[in-house]
Every structure is written in structure tokens, then in C-alpha cells.
């Protein structure tokens, strides 16, 4: 269980995250929504410890994550994979190497620097790529791929970390609707199959409704909504997104990226079939 208690983060005068209290059970698929600047991104970065909280504590399965440092911190970061809006791959390295970089914390630094990978590690990387349906790009430079492909490489890298939690910071904000769907489907698939907890920041309501079992709404650094997608009423949306006086001011469509034609008809799911039964 991932527990966040009274976590506050201040940048100078401004308070990005204000006394947030959350408990996320294992295997949950959580969507965090809110306007930009609501503190969603800061919250996720604090969980991964890319940013340190100013106050409060974060713990995972009894380990106080927010107090870790050095090698222990890096081990936590390995267990808590992160996916970024801008993919954050190494553009000049090939896709396979990028995926293998997910193994960095599993191995000795010397072997890493010499890029000596075992056959099994490479097989795993290929399997992860195949699962995301981009194995054919394995030898291309990551920078030459399209955004959607790059994000899938990033997910493959996250899988290589063998994480317990995946944090996704706006994973589909830079993608076109088609690719957004593929990426979200992958995340949902990983959550469903491996039972990995997924916490994802989303800026679109309907995506959150569609994929997440639990939605957390944030506004001005505080959690203002926490519940199942069905409980997300217009009033709740108004609390999250503010709106100019009237709840109806935010039609669902504004924050939607979905496309009308169903991409994946029921019963036909070849795309995300795992390469190997894992």
C-alpha cells in the first residue's frame, strides 16, 4: 500500500501541494485529474522522489520512502517506474538500449557503463517491446520514432524495471487520440495482468472515467475529490476545475480526447497480446 500523509511541497512562496493525504492500495488504477498547476505533477514526482516533499511523509509497504537516500532511494525509484509526458528517452540511443536502461539499477555500474547485457536481458527487452507492438523498431534511434511509439518505448523501459508501481505523468498529453488510446490501453493491460499499481495524471475527464477504477481530483494543491468514476458528478467536476460560477461551464467534451470510432472492437485484441506468457 502506498500511503501519502500530510505531504506539502512549496516552491518559494507558492505551495504546489498542500497537505495531501492519500492511500492507494496495491493493484489499483488511479487517475489524478485537475487543472494544470493543480499540483498533480508535483505529487507524482514526489512519490518517485524526483522532488523532495517539504513536509509530510510517503511510505510504501511500510517503508518510509520519503526518508530514503543514496542507493536505497535509487532502489525505490527502480520499484516505482515513471512515465513522462515528453517520454524522456535518450534520443540518440537505439530503442533496445533505451529499454535495457530500465535494468540499470538491477546491475553493477561497471557492467552498465560497458553496455554488457546478457542474452536473457536482451530477450526480455525484445519481449517487452513486442508486447507493446514496437519490436520492429528495436534498432532505430529512439529520437526518430513518433511520439506514440516513443511513449510505448518508455512503457517498455518501465516494464524492464520490474516495478511495483508505475507513475505516469500526463502520458498522453503530447499524443494524438489514436496513440493516446494505445498507450492508455497498454497501461490498463499492465495493471490488469501484472497487478502493478498505476497512478496516472490525466487532463481529460473521459479518459479517467474510462480507464481508472478510482479518480482523485486536485485543485490548488489539495485533494478535492476522491472516489469511483461514477461518483464524479458535475458538482465534483466543478470543484476540481473551478469553472466560472456555473457547474455547466465545463462540458465534458472540452476535456475529451476520445475519438468516435471504436478502435478496438470487443473480442478482438491482438495488439496487446503478450509475447510470452509471463
Amino acid at each position: 500500500m502506498l500511503a501519502i500523509r500530510h505531504v506539502t511541497r512549496r516552491f518559494g512562496e507558492t505551495t504546489a501541494v498542500d497537505k495531501v493525504d492519500l492511500e492507494i492500495a496495491e493493484g489499483e488504477m488511479v487517475g489524478v485529474i485537475g487543472r494544470s498547476g493543480a499540483g498533480k505533477s508535483t505529487l507524482l514526482r514526489m512519490i518517485n522522489r524526483l522532488i523532495d516533499p517539504s513536509e509530510g511523509e510517503i511510505s510504501f509497504q511500510g517503508t518510509q520512502v520519503s526518508a530514503l537516500g543514496g542507493a536505497a532511494l535509487r532502489r525505490w525509484q527502480r520499484d516505482c517506474a515513471m512515465i513522462f509526458q515528453q517520454f524522456n528517452l535518450v534520443p540518440r540511443l537505439d530503442v533496445l538500449t533505451n529499454v535495457l536502461l530500465g535494468r540499470l539499477n538491477h546491475r553493477s555500474t561497471a557492467l552498465n557503463l560497458l553496455s554488457v547485457y546478457s542474452r536473457e536481458e536482451r530477450l526480455k527487452a525484445i519481449a517487452a517491446l513486442e508486447r507493446l507492438d514496437i519490436a520492429q523498431t528495436a534498432l532505430q534511434r529512439a529520437g526518430t520514432l513518433s511520439g506514440g511509439q516513443q511513449q510505448r518505448v518508455a512503457i517498455a523501459r518501465a516494464l524492464m524495471q520490474e516495478p511495483k508501481v508505475i507513475l505516469a505523468d500526463e502520458p498522453i498529453a503530447s499524443l494524438d487520440p489514436l496513440n493516446a488510446k494505445v498507450v492508455m490501453d497498454s497501461l490498463a493491460d499492465i495493471n490488469a495482468r501484472e497487478g502493478i499499481t498505476v497512478v496516472t495524471n490525466l487532463h481529460t475527464l473521459d479518459t479517467a472515467r474510462q480507464y481508472c477504477s478510482r479518480i482523485i481530483g486536485m485543485a490548488r494543491g489539495s485533494v478535492v475529490f476522491d472516489g469511483a468514476p461514477e461518483e464524479l458528478t458535475r458538482e465534483a467536476v466543478h470543484r476540481i476545475y473551478g469553472g466560472e460560477g456555473r457547474a455547466e461551464a465545463i462540458p465534458e467534451e472540452i476535456t475529451s480526447t476520445s475519438i468516435d470510432t471504436p478502435l478496438r472492437p470487443q473480442g478482438e485484441q491482438p495488439r496487446l497480446e503478450p509475447a510470452l506468457a509471463g
Binding site: E120, A135, L139, M160, A275
Partner: peptide, 23 residues
């Protein structure tokens, strides 16, 4: 992601020969 069975690994490697040769 557990360990591979040998024949699965072979099959995977056979599907992407260039990856294993070129690296």
C-alpha cells in the same frame, strides 16, 4: 515478467535475428 522457457526464448530470438546479431 518471469523467466523464459528455452523454446520461447529461441523463438523470440529467431523472430528478431538482426537484433541479436547486430548488437
Amino acid at each position: 515478467m518471469g523467466a523464459f522457457h528455452a523454446h520461447e526464448a529461441e523463438a523470440l530470438a529467431a523472430r528478431y535475428p538482426d537484433v541479436f546479431a547486430r548488437s
